[in-house]
């Protein structure tokens, strides 16, 4: 939940530019690649995202088409043949959906909700954070008070309250996750922007009487990007996990279009019946996704935060 607290280590002033000839990006890539695990996880994340995007092409069946799903196929073990003749690789769930297809489609929902909410929250957070940092004074005070207030309250409670009032469904979960996350970005962006603002290049831009917007977007924003990326990865993983938790508590998705969290939670019903695959495989998929994103995020922090690197 509050993983951002570890992630949002404030960036440090006085970053020393290296003398090497490689571009910052090349340096970044070579630093990042020092950890084999992180590279593997990076490719895993890319693969998972591709899987989610091309779900309809990759998945053996369409688990959301009620005309094709039949309860006659319920809880088939992996390797058995379904009514329509296809072999189910990972078995079927309690409603007769092919589990592999459901996981792929479920990944799609989980990632859409996770990444989608992260992007919108990021956009809101960046705007609010930059405005706070740049305006300063009273506006800054008010904004930061709101942000602090929200951050002192656990994300899960806020999301819970919102979903209770909004009701179930992917769109509502998305809204709840955005509301929960924007403050993390706002604080991170403001903190880094405050540091950058006092630097000479911004001051010189001021002297050139460039417009405020231009300074904000062209000068400040790129320089606070690093911490945003770190917080962004961790928050995305966190959002996916939170969505799964909310689904487990019965406040997430609709029944016929389950996300990974709902799949696990449905599978919870079958833990005594030997149909292990229903909760284990979606759980593994969820785990791989979150752990990969977190390891990538962890590595990013190490690489992008010079104080912690050697």
């Amino acid at each position: 939940m509050n993983s951002a607290k570890t992630a949002a280590a404030p960036p440090v002033p006085g970053q020393i530019e290296p003398l090497a000839v490689e571009t910052p990006f090349q340096r970044f890539v070579s630093d990042f690649s020092e950890s084999k695990l992180a590279v593997a996880c990076f490719f895993a994340v890319v693969a998972i995202i591709l899987l989610a995007i091309f779900a309809p092409l990759i998945a053996p069946t369409d688990p959301y088409n009620l005309a094709l799903v039949t309860v006659a196929d319920k809880t088939l073990a992996p390797g058995m043949v379904m009514q329509d003749g296809t072999t189910t690789l990972l078995g079927t769930d309690g409603s007769g959906r092919d589990l592999l297809s459901s996981i792929i489609y479920g990944l799609r929902i989980s990632l859409t909700v996770g990444i989608g909410s992260a992007i919108v929250a990021l956009a809101i957070g960046v705007v609010v954070g930059l405005v706070a940092a740049y305006a300063g004074g009273r506006i800054d005070n008010i904004i930061m008070r709101i942000v602090d207030m929200q951050l002192s309250f656990p994300a899960i409670l806020i999301a819970l309250v919102l979903l209770v009032t909004l009701g179930k469904g992917a769109d509502k979960t998305l809204i709840a996750l955005i509301v929960v996350q924007w403050a993390y970005y706002a604080r991170t962006v403001r903190a880094s922007a405050m540091v950058e603002r006092r630097k000479e290049y911004v001051e010189s831009a001021h002297c050139l009487s460039l417009s405020r917007t231009r300074i904000l977007l062209k000068h400040l924003l790129p320089n606070v990007l690093a911490p945003i990326i770190v917080v962004g990865t961790v928050q995305t993983a966190h959002a996916i996990s939170l969505e799964a938790t909310l689904s487990f508590l019965g406040l997430g998705m609709e029944q016929t279009e389950p996300s990974l969290g709902s799949l696990i939670s449905n599978g919870f019903e079958y833990i005594h019946s030997g149909h292990y695959w229903i909760s284990v495989y979606p759980g593994v998929a969820l785990l791989l996704t979150i752990v990969s994103i977190n390891i990538v995020g962890d590595r990013l922090r190490d690489v992008l935060n010079p104080r912690l690197s050697k």
Partner: peptide, 23 residues
């Protein structure tokens, strides 16, 4: 919830496309 879903599957298969909403 599962009964509602199974009925929706059966009706859909027989030419009455049926959505499910449970709460």
């Amino acid at each position: 919830g599962k009964i509602a879903e199974a009925i929706a599957q059966m009706l859909t298969r027989n030419g009455i496309p049926t959505k499910v909403e449970t709460m």
